[in-house]
Design a binder for these strands. Structure first.
Length: 464
RNA sequence: GGCGGAGUCGCCAAGUGGUAAGGCAACGGUUUGCAAAACCGUUAUUCGAGGGUUCGAUUCCCUCCUCCGCCUCCA
């Protein structure tokens, strides 16, 4: 497949550098609370990316870390009155549950930062030894940006802009840090009173690793000095990924990541998500509004990963309808196939366009569109042809990670009083007492329920 | 101030130097007591504004307007 590379600024064909397995790293969550749908946009797109590679027959090695020690995890674990490990374990479990609900394939390796402190200390030692890092008086260690000429290439920052960064942040940092150069970033943070029990011994004294270094050390451990692709949200381009490159290249040599895949941020109601605006949704928030994880997934892949995607409750409703339509189309296709066929070839048939779009810079919205047009083109197919088309359709669905819903579910838990009114109305309707019938339907609407009449029975749906 | 991205039908959203996918919604028809569901059909001469290049631009260039993101630990 072809994919845009942040560093090269162009589409490039992806091939495993070892000729066999495509090895890639994704920056995972910081586990101090529930992940929100913005976080999941990135993880879902990374999942589709992996599924497309695997559908194309390319094996993958997917590494995604858990950041289980940093300022926020320490702060919030103390606020909760729990040991850091217990606190992060609980949120990690929640993250895994959400991932499963969204049908994200689990990474092959999911390292945690705390488990890899020795590797991190070793990497810092190497950087100090090679002259790329230095310890300050308080026992923190910093990376010396001036020792790495390529610094800023990924994010296109030149030295002038770094200088600007210095002046902008000089005031904020001057009383906290002991850096040679204010643009230098921290590799090891000296123990502070507020850290509680969360510190580890090191050659520079007690402390804890810096966030950027955690990823570099775990990448070195599991993917070595050169690997195929690195991914995360756009906000990580600077400084996180820029710093990772500096640390890893200086410590390990090698080319680090051959390709950079960044997912643009999700917007909610046209703007940035924030707690203060009350638009920071989690899967649980949306479930409470009656939306399924699959509907969320559909919305998240409904926009191209390099464009802003505007998330609204309305788009979730549209996703619900769209998934129903796909399910009906698939059922109709299966009915027309009329039986099982042994299908030798693995072509995509009417869904070739969808596959092509997925392979062209991961165009998920284009592929979704082609799913509908492919279904329409298949309406005349029967027997083996229909079965072949259905096979292609299902391959695309698997690549997108979509599971179609069963035919519109009849609501299970209807309150007794609502049920009673509906029964009464049904009797009036059967007796052709239209006036009373309409009156009772209006009443149900007022009570928040929609009653739809069928030939033999009726359905009640809550209005949301 | 610097860097980057975006403005396409009421909403969401693809796409392309050659004349605008798809979904939702809406509307019309068949059907229905009326609705709903289902099925069929319709819905942007136009792609933020203005110039330019071109046989031809929404797609390339320039200017402007609007919005968004990043600029030291936020996916």
């Amino acid at each position: 497949m072809r994919l845009f590379d942040t560093l090269a600024r162009t589409d490039r064909e992806l091939r495993p550098i070892d000729g066999k397995t495509f090895r890639f790293y994704c920056c995972g969550p910081t586990v101090y609370g529930p992940a929100h749908i913005g976080n999941f946009r990135t993880f879902v797109l990374q999942d589709v990316f992996r599924r497309v590679l695997e559908t194309a027959g390319i094996p993958t090695l997917h590494v995604r870390n858990i950041t289980d020690v940093d300022d926020k995890t320490i702060r919030d674990s103390q606020k909760a009155g729990k040991p850091l490990a217990d606190f992060t374990a609980a949120w990690t479990a929640k993250f895994h549950a959400d991932c499963e609900a969204l049908r994200l394939l689990p990474p092959h390796i999911e390292p945690g930062a705390v488990e890899h402190i020795p590797q991190q200390i070793a990497m810092i030692s190497t950087l100090v030894k090679k002259g790329h890092a230095y310890a300050s008086d308080d026992g923190s260690v910093y990376f010396k940006i001036s020792s790495f000429p390529d610094y800023g290439k990924l994010s296109r920052l030149d030295s002038r802009e770094l200088d600007l960064g210095k002046t902008q942040n000089a005031r904020a940092n001057s009383d906290e840090y002991e850096k040679d150069n204010l643009s230098d970033f921290v590799l090891w943070k000296a123990r502070r009173p507020g850290d509680g029990d969360n510190f580890w011994p090191s050659p520079w004294g007690e402390g804890r690793p810096g966030w950027h270094l955690e990823c570099s050390a775990m990448i070195a451990e599991y993917l070595g000095d050169s690997f195929d692709l690195h991914s995360g949200g756009v906000d990580l381009v600077f400084p996180h990924h820029e710093n990772e490159i500096a640390q890893s290249v200086c410590a390990c040599g090698g080319r680090f990541s051959a390709h950079w895949f960044h997912v643009t941020h999700l917007l909610v109601d046209g703007g940035k998500m924030s707690k203060s605006l009350g638009n920071l949704y989690t899967l649980e928030d949306l479930a409470a509004k009656g939306f399924t994880p699959m509907e969320v997934r559909y919305v998240l892949i409904g926009g191209h990963y390099r464009k802003p995607l505007n998330f609204t409750l309305d788009s979730l409703h549209a996703a619900h309808e769209a998934l129903q339509k796909l399910a009906k189309g698939a059922t109709a296709l299966a009915t027309r196939a009329g039986g099982d066929f042994t299908l030798a070839d693995v072509s995509f048939g009417p869904f070739q366009a969808a596959w092509d779009q997925l392979n062209h810079d991961l165009n998920t919205p284009g592929a979704l569109g082609s799913l509908f047009t492919g279904l329409r083109e298949s309406t005349a197919l029967t027997g083996r042809d229909a079965a072949a088309a259905l096979a292609g359709f299902n391959r695309i669905l698997r690549a997108l990670g979509l599971i179609l819903p069963p035919a519109e579910e009849k609501t299970a838990d209807i309150p007794a009083d609502i049920q009673a009114i509906a029964e009464e109305r049904w009797q009036h309707r059967t007796a052709k007492n239209w006036a009373k019938s309409d009156e009772l339907r209006a009443r149900l609407t007022e009570l928040g329920w929609t009653m739809k009449d069928g030939k033999e029975d009726y359905t009640l749906t809550p209005i949301r």
